[in-house]
Simulated scan of single mutants.
Amino acid sequence: MGLNAALAVHPASGHGAAGRIADTVADRLRPAVDRLDVLVATNVDESRTLMRSAHAEGLDVLIVLGGDGAAHQGVQFCAEHEVALGLVPSGTGNDFARALGTPPDALTAADTLAEALRAGTRRRLDLGRVERGAAAGAWFATVLCSGFDAAVNARANNLRWPAGPRRYDVAILAELAAFRPRPVSLHTDAGTLELDATLVAVGNTPYYGGGVPICPQAIPDDGLFDVTVIGAAGRLQLLRLLPGLRTGAHLEHPAVHTLRTRKLSIETGATSGWPAYADGESQGTTPISATCVPGALTVVAP
């Protein structure tokens, strides 16, 4: 029985980079499989429809050419349908691909993935599952965050100017002026932790925000989340702490707390909830819960 694969292309990823290299990526992958269908979608609904059609024809591997948003959609589909996932990163963040050790250059990544397809290389990874009450929500592969960093993400998404990474610089400055720590209750496997906090990051893998190792010790196949909590940090403390996020040095700051748990619930009291994002996608506001589900995703990766 042959290997049936599909290449899901999100043409706008990486400011149009995915669309420009899609044919070349397909050419590099095609010799490694028996069948390769190219699925080009411009929105989530269209992408899901194409994936379901491919699955109905016996899909074995879904390969996503795009950024973290595209990877997030691929994770939802593959986890629900027991289809293996491959990544060819072509976005601006590529945090899940980075955690898998995928080469950052898309064409090199395509060649590496083709080798893994020929060799039949597979890995089982954990995923996080967002929960609200008794209802299971989205899967996430990287980080669920709430608080300052999620507020920055939300504000940046609403800015029309400037374009690119500068939006986040503007959003950070705006949130520094407006954001205040608040009392937070964290319900973990070991009990409840109550403190004033600035942000909570729940890591299945280390990275978010385009390579920030917010949970640098997170391992995606150990059955546990690594959680990073920044306590009641003022504006000046945050300004001093933020550069350390790029290197993992923030873990040494006295305002930073870490823990490991399989389940976590975040509650922020009776006032309006904090925004929450997982894999860079909005998950509403707190209260919010997440569970680490061992072996929920199969990936094709070295």
Rank of each mutant, 00 (worst) to 15 (best):
R166F: 03
P216M: 08
S90I: 10
H250D: 07
L39G: 09
F179C: 00
D34Y: 15
P183Y: 12
V9T: 03
D34G: 15
R98Y: 08
P243Q: 06
D23R: 13
G91L: 07
A178N: 14
L36G: 11
G234M: 00
L251V: 14
A151T: 04
L238E: 05
A190F: 14
A177S: 03
A150V: 04
G147F: 00
G86T: 07
G210A: 09
N153R: 02
A110L: 11
P275Q: 08
H15I: 08
L245F: 09
D169Y: 06
A301V: 10
P294T: 10
A134N: 13
Q76Y: 03
E57M: 11
I219D: 06
G295F: 09
H253V: 11
P162N: 08
D23P: 09
R182A: 06
A97I: 11
A26W: 10
A255R: 11
E194I: 14
A71Y: 01
L224T: 02
Q76W: 02
R166H: 06
R240A: 15
A150T: 01
V256Q: 08
L39S: 12
G137I: 05
Q76V: 02
R28G: 05
R235V: 06
G19Y: 10
R35H: 15
R118V: 13
R124Y: 11
A119P: 07
P165W: 05
D222Q: 03
L159K: 02
R122K: 07
L117R: 04
